[in-house]
Simulated scan of single mutants.
Amino acid sequence: MRIPRHFAPVVLLGVLALAGCEGGTETDDSAPATPPTATPTASATPTASPTATATATPDPVMPALHGRTYEQARAELTRQDISAARLTATAQHKDVTLPGDHDGWYICDAGPGRGTRLAADATVTVRLAKDFSDCTTSFHGYLHQKNDPAYVPPTTAAPKPKPKPTATRAPAPAPTKAPTKPAGGSMTTCSDGKQGYACTSNGHPVVDGQFCPKADRGRTLMATNRTMVTCSYDPSITPYRWQ
């Protein structure tokens, strides 16, 4: 179709307007892109490491010291990490003085008791005797009865005067000597008030199997069970016993 020349500019403007509507709005690719905003992350809170708890060392236990010498007791305490400086000693009897060198003396009693926990400030007290057999001898706390203030010696009755023979009477025949009985064969009363068939040098009845004093070692006497026993040493039994 031929368009008259005088309508050409109008047609051109209409075509351009239509082209603008169809293209829409263009985006400028030359503009710099907006960088994405970084989201702040929460910082990790450091976790405290657990503190190691120190384990308390238990208190040592009191060992068995009865029957041992003072030197053996000191070595046993040292072996169980108990300071020997905590050990104190005293005599078992009131009438005995503990010498400076008492390592060979025997322990009759010890405190606190066996198995007791020993605190840091606790002390160990032992009571000593020179002979272990003396541990069982006590006269109100005294080793020798004569040293006991409560002891009263028995009174000895004065002998009766012998009658004078008269001229008319013949002198009485000399009494025949009774046969000697075995040692301890007759009933007797020991100084401690107990009845037995013989008395030890400490004044106790002789009992078969019991400890015997040092002064009686080698003596043979009749025990309360009517058997003859000797104060002798047996390597399996310490110290000396009536056997």
Rank of each mutant, 00 (worst) to 15 (best):
K94A: 15
A17M: 15
D192P: 02
D234H: 08
D103V: 05
R114Q: 12
S138Y: 04
R79N: 09
P50H: 07
C199F: 02
D148F: 02
P175C: 00
P153I: 03
G209K: 02
Q210H: 10
T39G: 01
R226H: 12
T45R: 07
L13I: 12
E26R: 14
T123E: 09
P112K: 03
T25P: 04
P161G: 02
Y197A: 01
A8L: 15
A52S: 08
R5M: 12
A8N: 14
K194C: 12
M1Q: 15
L128Q: 00
P4I: 07
T166P: 00
G104A: 14
V10D: 11
A85H: 13
R114F: 12
P175N: 02
S191F: 04
W105N: 00
T200H: 01
R86T: 13
Q210K: 12
P149I: 09
P179D: 05
P58A: 11
P175Q: 06
P36K: 07
V126I: 15
T90N: 15
D192Q: 08
T230F: 02
R169C: 08
A44N: 09
T55M: 09
A158Y: 00
N225D: 15
F139G: 00
S232K: 05
S232N: 12
E22C: 14
E76A: 06
S133M: 01
D28Y: 13
P163G: 06
T69D: 05
H144I: 04
P171C: 02
L18A: 15
G14T: 13
A48S: 07
H204I: 01
Y151V: 09
T123S: 10
P35K: 03
P179N: 07
